[in-house]
């Protein structure tokens, strides 16, 4: 757990890495890990994961088309737009 690691997770989360702040974040993560460590007490090898408490299955819809949004509404919310599209920084592929 070092500054390089903080920089790494910042890059994954697309958040600015702040060198000065990184010690504080390291402390937070360490405390969090101590917290998580508590769960190691419990043997969960035979326990199935539980994501949705209701464990419902097979919620699906019929393949039917409904109206989409008007394009001008989509563009009104977009900070940058051009030619009916949403504009972003140049992407080099």
């Amino acid at each position: 757990m070092d500054k390089g690691y903080i920089e790494y997770i910042c890059s994954l989360a697309k958040l600015e890495y702040d060198e000065e702040n990184s010690d504080r974040i390291i402390e937070k993560i360490k405390a969090f890990d101590v917290y998580a460590e508590k769960l190691a007490d419990i043997d969960t090898n035979d326990i199935k994961p539980l994501v949705n408490v209701n464990e419902t299955i097979n919620v699906m819809r019929e393949d039917a088309v409904m109206p989409s949004l008007e394009r001008n509404i989509i563009l009104e919310n977009a900070p940058e737009k051009l030619y009916g599209c949403i504009k972003v920084s140049k992407i080099i592929e």
């Binding site: 769960l39 326990i47 994501v51």
Partner: peptide, 10 residues
Amino acid sequence: KAIRVRRLIK
């Protein structure tokens, strides 16, 4: 780990 322990809590 958390989603497994979650079952026990439930």
